[in-house]
Design a protein around this nucleic acid. Structure first.
Lengths: 66, 66
DNA sequence: GTTTTATGTAATTTATATCTTACATATGTA
DNA sequence: TACATATGTAAGATATAAATTACATAAAAC
């Protein structure tokens, strides 16, 4: 599951650990999602999107991938 | 996780079973997602969106809920 | 009035997302 | 050099999404 989480997190000058704490998961989970090795739950995707001031489509919709 | 899956599925004149088969899950899984009792995986959300000719935001983003 | 069709729901099982703990590396900095 | 920060990764445990099987109901079709 390729996505735009990493690039958008960096744009917000946020570390993996900061984002993880804000959405209630571990740093490792964020790392694996950014690598595309996880298939995260919808709730987690929504939480990440809100923290990064983006929508689901911005982060996870194929046509929007950077 | 409230969403617009049921209303969009009905607009496509599709049954739960038809949608389930097309996205590779069981009828029960679709039923529970429509009821908001499941927290589906991102991959499944994307598959459902594509079958219904919608995007993730159309189906699952809070501000778009009908 | 019995036979499909579509849906709701519940119990048990299976697969996998996520946690926990831990160690490694690369970079910056005192 | 030594220390702190940010990230990668791996093994084992836990939580939960999803499958499987099964039974129930309502409505339409015949």
């Amino acid at each position: 599951m390729k996505n735009n989480v990493k690039i958008m997190r960096l744009k917000m000058s946020m570390t993996q650990e900061q984002l993880a704490k804000r959405v209630g998961v571990t740093r490792q989970t964020i790392g694996l999602i950014e690598k595309g090795e996880y298939n995260p739950s919808l709730q987690l995707c929504v939480a990440i999107a809100k923290e990064l001031n983006k929508t689901l489509d911005d982060l996870f919709w194929e046509e929007n991938l950077i």
